[in-house]
Amino acid sequence: MQYNKLGKSAIEVSSIGLGCMSLKGSKHKQGVEIIRKAFDSGINFFDTADLYEKGFNEMLVGEAVQDFRKRIVLSTKVGNSWRADGNGWDWKASKSYIVKTVESSLSRLKTDYIDLYQLHGGTIEDPIDEIIEAFDLLVSAGKIRTYGLSSIRSNVIREYVAKSNISAVMMQYSLLDRRLEEEMGAYLLHHRISVLARGAVAKGMLINKQAENFLQYSSSEVQHIIRNLHAFAKKHHVNNLTVALSFVLSNEAVTAALLGINTPLQLTELIQIKEQVRSLTGAEKIELLSGVRALYFTEHR
């Protein structure tokens, strides 16, 4: 397993991380076992959020990592607050809310610090300066080691890059979502800010799910990309997951790809292929992208 620096911080994360949102409280024991087995396989990066299952996902992760807490990178997110009736959530981004809410996450995670604390969204209308003050205050207090942003909004990302010490931006990136390549990947790489890629298998369509319209691609375009992927995988004697991850991690701006694993079988498959994941050559990328048009961000530019 390869380990990479998270932005300009001293933190090192495995190139493949576990997105824990898919682990459900209804299968608590199984989720705990998946996290522990992932750690045993070399994965040291685990991501959750206070929003997931109304905090129960953080509790599951916190229980699972107790025996090796100091040896992993634990990431969670803040900014969304469940309504009292449990019917949806509201965006709450303020200094007071972040400073108060981190305590709840620390308690649920059974830890006294969070390695990476991320703003779970964000708009250009937010009080960005005071949000940054909150994160910097938490770093100074030792509550968090570093902070970042989970967003695909280019205008919001630029504001935080210009004004803060963020180490990472989590955003979608896959063969079916290459908007990162337009300019944001190069921009973040230039500023030594890590891209944490989610959605590497595009809702499972790059693995085994039926093709459908996706972002600006029609279902026929999605099918074309999947055919390219199938042909490439067959030619190189690997499976689709290996190729999908290799593509994502071949982008120099990407520090880690986060996969949502929710069954022991999925984890076993990942463990079996993770050492086959490699950087693709320029020619191989051209082969994979033959006949594929580029995508661009259409909003929040």
Rank of each mutant, 00 (worst) to 15 (best):
Q2H: 09
Q2S: 14
K5D: 13
K5E: 04
G7W: 01
K8M: 12
S9D: 11
E12T: 13
I16K: 00
G25A: 11
S26V: 13
H28M: 12
E33Q: 10
E33C: 03
I35N: 08
I35R: 02
R36W: 00
K37W: 03
D40V: 05
D47V: 04
G55F: 06
E63K: 00
R69M: 04
R71F: 01
V73L: 01
L74M: 13
T76S: 12
V78A: 07
G79W: 06
W82Q: 12
W82F: 12
G88N: 05
S94R: 07
K95Q: 13
S96F: 00
V99I: 15
E103F: 00
E103D: 15
R108N: 13
L109D: 10
E125I: 02
D126R: 00
P127K: 03
D129N: 14
I132Y: 04
E133D: 15
D136S: 08
S140M: 03
R145M: 03
S151I: 09
N155P: 00
V156H: 05
A162H: 03
N165V: 10
M171R: 08
Y187P: 03
L188R: 08
L188Q: 02
L189R: 10
L189I: 08
H191T: 12
A202G: 15
G204L: 10
G204K: 11
L206V: 12
N213M: 02
S220H: 14
E221L: 07
I226N: 10
N228K: 13
H236G: 01
V238H: 07
L241I: 14
A244E: 02
E252L: 12
V254P: 06
T255K: 03
L259Q: 05
I261H: 10
N262T: 05
T263G: 10
P264K: 01
L265H: 09
L267C: 03
L270V: 00
K274W: 01
E275P: 02
E275K: 07
Q276K: 13
V277Q: 00
T281K: 01
E284P: 01
I286E: 15
V292C: 11
Y296C: 03
T298P: 01
E299I: 08
E299C: 05
H300P: 00
R301K: 13
